[in-house]
Write a protein that binds this DNA or RNA. Structure first.
Lengths: 131, 131
DNA sequence: CTTGACTCTCTAGTCAGTATAGGCTTGACC
DNA sequence: GGTCAAGCCTATACTGACTAGAGAGTCAAG
């Protein structure tokens, strides 16, 4: 399978796949005589793993850790759970922050009645007239 | 006021203030004979405005627009409201994404009972054994 | 007169890609 | 066999919003 097909199948851009290879997140595949990358099922699975992790918001460093942990199947998966839990609590604190933001922005918007900038409550609440 | 004091008062790092000046988000202040930046109340207000906007998640481009709009106090503030509303809907879609993430991660974590990596449900759901 | 905290400029690094330039390879059509 | 587009290659630079470091100058206190 060539890089383009792998890209389509995993919904990843070609450049991103090459980038993952460059940073060592995806194993370098063998090449055709002309230098084209030739991917197999293992690469497809590995890239799917990476994509799923990224979709869940794991950083590339975290994915590296997950890959390292996965490498030895006899190890306890407590560390994996711990990593996922740490990530979950990060997600939760981001959620809390965004909820606060939503409230503040909502209040800001309803506080303004849309007349002249001079009386704009939004700008007033934002601190002062900048620029 | 020197840059360090401005930094303390606005809870901004010194480097960030210099960065804002460099990109034109904060007016360049006069300098002392030895080249130190000398800030006044206007700079303080302007930087507070910027910080509040950043805290609310506005991008630097959006802050530039807000500053430009604020520049002419006779203008209607409909554009400002529109900008804030666009930002709010962005925040809401990020919230929705994070909520999905929270559910998925929570499910993933509870699905695993913490034994060997070989049987780890988290890794299984994440796609396959990478590395 | 020396110490230490503060300031200056300039450059490079972060994260996770994305984009571009300039050049090969492949397969289809004529 | 010629030529064209689509696909692939490397290498480099760019993004946003800072952050960090080097190396040097400035200032007040002891």
């Amino acid at each position: 399978m060539q890089i383009g097909q792998l890209a389509t199948r995993t919904e990843t851009k070609v450049e991103t796949i090459r980038y993952y290879e460059r940073i060592g997140l995806l194993a370098a595949p063998p090449r055709s005589p002309s230098g084209y990358r030739q991917y197999g099922q293992d690469h497809l699975r590995q890239l799917m793993f990476v994509r799923h992790c990224r979709d869940l918001g794991f950083s590339i460093g975290e994915i590296r850790s997950l890959q390292a942990l996965a490498h030895d199947p006899r190890q306890s998966c407590a560390e994996i759970t711990a990593l996922a839990e740490a990530h979950l609590s990060e997600v939760r604190s981001k959620l809390a922050g965004l909820r606060r933001l939503e409230r503040t922005l909502g209040r800001l918007i309803t506080s303004c009645d849309g007349r002249r900038v001079a009386d704009c409550q939004i700008l007033k609440e934002l601190g002062s007239i900048g620029g």
